[in-house]
Every structure is written in C-alpha cells, then in structure tokens.
Amino acid sequence: MINFRLDGRSVVPTYLQIVQQVRQALRMGVLDVGDKLPTVREVVAATAVNPNTVLKAYRDLEREGLVEPRAGHGTFVVGRPSGPPPGTHARLARSLAQWVHGAREAGLDDESIESLLRITLRAAAEEETA
C-alpha cells in the first residue's frame, strides 16, 4: 500500500501532493490496477492531514479515471495515467541518477544542475516547435 509523504512547508497544496504521489506511484509501477488506496481515515491517522483534503485528492483522481470508490470497501486503482508503460520512469530515473552523480563529480551544485536542466528543456522545446 502507498504511504504518503506530505510536506506542510511545500508550495504545492497538500491535496495535490497526494494526487501527484499516486500518479507517480502508478508511473513507477509501485501501484497497479486493482490495488487499494489507504482509506481517508488511515491517511489522516498517519499524517494528521485534514480528511477533506484527502477526499478532495481522491475525488480528483476519480475524475481523472485513475481510481474508483467501492462502497464499503475503499478506493481502488482502475487506470494508469497516460504515458509510457510502467518501468520506463524507473529506468530513466536510474540513468538520470547516474548523470547527476557525474555532474556533482564535475563540481556542479544543485542550483547549477537545476538551471542546466531548465535550459536544456527549453532548448529541446524550441527545437521541437522549430
């Protein structure tokens, strides 16, 4: 079962953190169709987050067609977010980790790495539209 890490200091609203973590778990293959999400009560007892926040996140996921509540049984995964098959992200994450390691060894700090990533993404986007 998925375990949410919710950061009150984050600029991302808490309900969106839950939505993003479920989507991410589906992409990484940690969650799959048929799996059960923790109940609102379970999430709340573990995180002290407001129950309405969890409900809002689950409703958003339901609207996206990713989960479905079954009366008396809980909320179940019924779909995957569009995108590459599960495992793709895990594979790319490994090669990216290798790249980050190389960048750090070359003396880049996190800020330089982030700015390099942004510049590369922008350049790639311009290349595609050109």
Partner: peptide
C-alpha cells in the same frame, strides 16, 4: 502535537 492532531482528524473523518 502531531499525534494529538491525528487523533482529532481521525475523529472528524468518522
């Protein structure tokens, strides 16, 4: 504090 608030949120979830 966290345990207290979790107990409170759980009661509201009920």
């Amino acid at each position: 504090r966290r345990h207290f608030l979790a107990q409170l949120a759980e009661a509201v979830a009920d």
